[in-house]
Structure formats: C-alpha cells, structure tokens
Design a protein around this nucleic acid. Sequence first.
RNA 1: CGGGGCGUAGCGCAGUCUGGUAGCGCACUUGAAUGGGGUUCAAGGGGUCGGAGGUUCAAAUCCUCUCGCCCCGACCA
Length: 506
Amino acid sequence: MGKKTKAAITPTRSEDYTEWYQQVVKASVLAERSAVRGCMVILPWGYALWENIMQNLDKLFKMTGVKNAYFPLFIPLHFLEKEAEHVEGFAKECAVVTHHRLEQGPSGGLVPAGELTEPLIVRPTSETIIGDSFSRWVSSYRDLPLLINQWANVVRWEMRTRIFLRTSEFLWQEGHTVHATQSEAEERTLMMLDLYASVAEEYLAMPVIKGAKSASERFPGAVETYCIEAMMQDRKALQAGTSHFLGQNFAKASGIKFQSASGSEEFGWTTSWGVSTRLVGGLIMTHGDDDGIILPPRVASAHIVLMPIIRKETDREPVMTYIENLAAELRDVAYHEAPIRVEIDDRDIGGAKGWEWIKKGIPIRVEVGPRDMAENAVFMGRRDKSHREKTAVKRDVFLNTITSILDDIQDNLFQRAKAYLEAYTHDLDSRSEFYSFFTPQNPEKPEIHGGFAKSHWCGSPECEATIKEDLSVTIRCIPFEHVDDTGQCICCNASSRQRVIFAKAY
RNA sequence: CGGGGCGUAGCGCAGUCUGGUAGCGCACUUGAAUGGGGUUCAAGGGGUCGGAGGUUCAAAUCCUCUCGCCCCGACCA
C-alpha cells in the first residue's frame, strides 16, 4: 500500500495527452520501440489485437468477392515514375535499395557493394507494381471486375514518427480493383468505405464520419479520395481508413486495357483502399482512460482473465481446478461465432497482477478464491467501469450471461465514444468563433481544446490554405451529410453549398 | 531541416556547475512473513556513465567532434 497513485498511468490525459499516449502503449505491452528508427516491435498482446482486426476485415472483404494475393516488397524505380502525381506524392518518403551485397570495408566494417543498375524502391504503396501484374491479367471485359487484396508491410520514410499512428514501416491491407465502367468502380470505392465504417463502429467501437477529401488532401494520383475520420480524446481527428477512386489514371500508367463486348479497346477503371495498424493507435486514443487502454470485446486480444486467489497452499489445487473447469466451459461459449478467449494468470505476485490486466485493457477480470468457490460464484470486474466496482456473480449466471456482458461493454464503449464525438462537434458560422474554437487558452502548453467544426467552405484552395496556415486546422472531409445546406464560407464569406469538417489532425 | 529537452543497471532518475574512479527507487533472483489485491522484511545479481578524440597524476563530471532519442514546427496513413 506504499503508493497512493490514483490512476495507473502517469501523466493523466488532461495533464499531458501526448505523454499519456506513450505511457499507455508501454504499459499495455501492445508494442515497443525498436532499434530501427521510426519502427516498432509489435508484442504478442498487440499482435493478437491486430490479428483479430485482420480476420474480421478479411472475412468481410471475401464476402464482397475480393481475393487475396501477394506482390513484391520492391518496386523498380521506373514503375513509380509512371504516374506523375503519384511520384510527386511519394518521392519524398521512399526507402531506396541501391546495392545487393556487403563487403568488408577498409576499416573493418561492412560496406555496401554490388550497385544495382536500377534502384529498387521499398513499396510505400503498391498501385504501380500491382498495376503491372493487372496489365497482364486483364485483356477482356470478361476478366472484370478484378478484385484483389494484399496483406502487407509498407515503408514511408516519415520525418516524425509516432508509435502505431505513424511508423516508418507499418502493416496494412491494400485492396486494388479494376472495373469495366466508371460507375462500377465508384460503387466499389464507396462499398469499401462503408465496410471500413462498419468495421470501425461495430468492431472497434469507434464512431466515424464518412466523407470525401478536398483536392489538397487527396491520395496522389486519385480522382477522388474518401475517408473515415474519427475523433480522439484530445479532440484531434484521425484518418482511420481511405478508399480511392483512381479513374483511369493508373490504368493508363500501367497499361491496364481490355476489349469490351463491342470489340473496342478501353482502359480499366481502378480503385484502391486500405487500413493499417494505425487503427490500433485510434483504438487506444478513442477508449483509453487514465488507467490505460480498454479493448473492445469484438477485437480484444483476450476477453477474460481468470485470477486465482490463493490464501493457503491447501487451497491452490481446488481453486486451480475450479478455474480450469471454468476456463474450459467459457471457451466452449461462442461469442460472435468465435470461442471466448480466456487467459489464466496464476502468477503469485499479489495485487500488481490485477493492475497489469487493467493496463492491458482486458474487458473482464475474474477473481476466484475459496470464498467464491463456497458460494459457487466468481468475482468480476469490467474494464469499462471503475477498478473498484467489482461484483460477485453466480457461476452459472456468469456463464449464461457472458456474451451479453461482452456485448454490453462493446456497446458502452461505442456510446461513450459517440457521445464524445457529438459533444465536441459544432456547427460554427462566424470566423471569430471558429478561430477561438481552435486556439488554446495557454499557447505555451496547449490544453485539450477544439474538436470538429462543421463550417461552410466555398471550395477554394486559398481559403483552405489560409486556415491551415493560421490554425494548423485542415479539412478532414466533406461529409456525405449536410449536402443541401447553404451558407457563407468561414474564411472569405463567399457563398457555400455545404459544410465540411475542419479539425486539427494526426 | 529549424527551435527546445535528454542520453548513467531492464525501467525511472540523482551525481556533472565545484574532476578523485558510481548511487537511489522500481523491476529481477533467493529466503521468510503476509494474503480478496499495485504488501512487508532480509540477503543478492546486474553498469566499458551513448560513441570517438583531447586536457589531466586522475574524467560520468572539463573541451571538441559525432551518434541517437523525446517534444514543438514543416511533411504525411
């Protein structure tokens, strides 16, 4: 009882949000920094979470007819040069392989040797290398639509990295499709956006706003970029997923052509769409509290931890037997078509154990000691409630209600996050109101402020740039709602046909 | 690439100004006590003080150069 720390994480969110995030990641054992600049090691607890996200997405992709494939890590330099905007967009952040051998240097160390005739780029995204394959796979309208996804790692040499949110290397999926018509491709782009939104909301319990990017925020080479934007607890926006309608730009660059039913030669219409390990960062900042992360049950690395309370050595065997039987029965319960994931923690380390699991964000902690056994009960704590709020539940009741308890936690997390998003999203119509909304009281050490401003925008890149320059606020998306609303641009007062979402962003 | 901070045990830090050859807390190991909760006591293991060079009888400490990390900008999923 030495320490009187009120929260498990120091500092708290309100004290220092950025530092809180880093401490939460550390305490959660989801990931850690690696020896390589800007790259992270994903630990088992974090990888299990990512696997659950992956499996759910993968299943949903396949239900829409998408098939998985795999393409090379390396892209020949000249491939990237094929689409002008695309080159410009990614050129600044590419890792380049120039040699294929190491030799003993004069001072003893290894030095690169065997220079390549053409450098290879470590993929920052795979439109061009996949386009090359697609150009050979597609020759007739009968080959379309072509619906491919790959699970891969990509590298973007960012100047500033942040664990899970922006690492030099990250894991993601990238879907790439080719269609015979523009409308079919557009339909697919929006279909995948909807799929992402429902995964974010139903699995990650993360409410999102769907919309289109402004021209300046578009994917390099895309005709249209759609996105889902979530609000973190420091009220900044996080782009949680994107779906791009690429028109015929990449088809022309890669030579993806097909012969139509009428015999004419036409370029395909392509799309690409992706979500990444960034989602994990979003999850942390959406649900975490001052005791650490809170994992939504639908994707949690594990659902329940069973912790024996052993008072006397003679209690150990009966308590462990009780726990192992309980675990076996729990694992036989299906939660959304998959077995409940149960951990048993019998380490004899006292109360620190419970706190470890709190910081790891497991949805349900269960303690079982002789007293519970005598009453045929378990002692349960929920991660979405205070750590002090624990209740005795009869064993059979616990087994019969466990899936609804998990669903209740899932729903509770979503409702909380949705209330937060709504509480800090405002229609703002005056320029002064808008500027004060995004200006902290204390510029030295900015407090959590702002949120999402739904404000009118005339559509000019100049107004967008002015606001970005003045406030570091950008247009996160042009939402699909509110399209018929008319008003005046927040920046220049010109007439505007709709509101857009302005926010500071990650 | 600019501005600020920092590299000393696995983690968090003190010691640096005023050179004398390394310490604290947590974690770890062992033993004991405790037992519905980040418990207590005792004993113990672990460090080329980020790296290189220099000054000095002597450098974690002073000087020069480097490398890396964190925060704030610019760039971005």
